[in-house]
Simulated assay, not measured.
Amino acid sequence: MDQLSFIPEELVRTLQKNAGNEDTRCSSSTLEMLRLLASLDVPKELLACMLEMAGFSIHHVRYLAGPLALHRSLWGDVIPTWLKAACMQDRFDLILSEYEQDQVGDYATPTEVLAYMMPASFEAPMHRDYSDLYIWAGNEVMRKHNKLPEGADNFYELIGGHAIEFKTVKTEFHDLSRSIRQSVVKHAAQQGWGKRRNRAKEEALAVVNPVQTTDQPKQGSLF
């Protein structure tokens, strides 16, 4: 219950108003309050419930509620805590951005790609294309989350490498980030996220179009 005390009453009232009404979209002020909550490390499960109340798509609810997709490796513990937190923050930001554009995207964030690839980078040398993707993602994430050492402008100068443009890793990024996002959403669906809304829709349809229970055959029936 302590977590709920962080939620503004105005936001709760707005979400309750939107609950069950997918035609009502959140205002910009409501989205800003959601962003603020995410920055306070509110559990993603609670945020996902709030998105569901607000009428976000089932895909977005499942994408937020789902786990981090990590490469299966004995090196899984090399992923720093800040990176895991950044994955969820950036995932939430991406969801809100897509919502504002009335879109449902296909790709995960560069932060999630970096976290997924990090354990694999400790196991064996990667193919050049994926090595470039890993370095590009590292630069994007470290710059965005202020993890570069003081005085450094980018990650490339730290490793003595050349700058990598997105167009050179676009194909690999799209392939891997799409796979990550699909896996996250699928796992959340298996956990039951979104089923409550599906049941609510089924119940609403049953009221509008009740099942015919008469023993009289319908016109045109073969029996």
Results as ranks from 00 to 15, higher is better:
D129P: 02
T111S: 08
P125R: 01
Y130G: 08
T111D: 03
W136D: 01
W136R: 04
F122M: 15
T111Y: 04
P110C: 06
N139W: 05
N139L: 04
M126H: 13
S131L: 13
M142V: 07
A120M: 15
M126V: 10
I135N: 02
V141Q: 09
D129G: 06
A124C: 12
P119T: 06
V141T: 09
I135V: 14
E123D: 10
R128D: 15
V113P: 06
F122R: 14
A137R: 04
R128C: 10
P125W: 00
M126R: 09
T111K: 02
D106E: 15
A124E: 15
A124S: 14
I135Q: 09
P119C: 07
E123Y: 05
M126S: 14
G138V: 06
D106M: 14
Y107H: 11
R128Q: 14
D106T: 14
P125K: 01
D106G: 12
Y116M: 10
H127I: 14
I135G: 01
A115F: 01
V113Y: 00
I135E: 07
A115D: 09
R143Q: 08
M118Y: 06
M117F: 02
E112C: 01
H127Y: 12
M142N: 12
R128F: 12
E112V: 01
A120Y: 14
G138E: 07
A108K: 00
M126E: 15
M118V: 03
N139E: 04
W136P: 04
H127W: 14
A120S: 13
M142K: 15
P119A: 06
P110M: 06
P119L: 05
Y134S: 01
E140P: 08
E112F: 03
V113A: 00
V113T: 08
T111P: 05
F122L: 10
Y116L: 10
V113S: 01
I135P: 08
D129I: 10
V141G: 05
P119I: 03
W136Q: 03
L133Q: 03
G138C: 08
T109V: 09
M142R: 13
E112D: 07
Y134A: 08
E140N: 10
D106I: 12
Y107I: 09
W136G: 01
N139F: 05
T111I: 08
P110G: 04
S121E: 13
H127C: 11
E112Y: 00
G138Y: 01
A115N: 04
A115T: 07
A124H: 15
E140Q: 14
D132C: 12
T109I: 06
E140I: 12
P119N: 05
S121N: 11
T109N: 07
M117K: 00
Y134C: 03
A108R: 00
M117E: 01
A124M: 14
D106A: 12
P119E: 06
Y130P: 11
A108N: 00
P110H: 07
M118A: 03
I135C: 07
A137Y: 06
S121R: 12
T109K: 08
G138S: 11
T109S: 10
M118R: 05
M142H: 12
G138Q: 07
E112S: 04
D106N: 13
M117T: 02
E112T: 02
A120Q: 15
T109F: 06
A137K: 03
Y107E: 14
M118D: 04
M118C: 03
M142C: 10
W136S: 03
A108P: 08
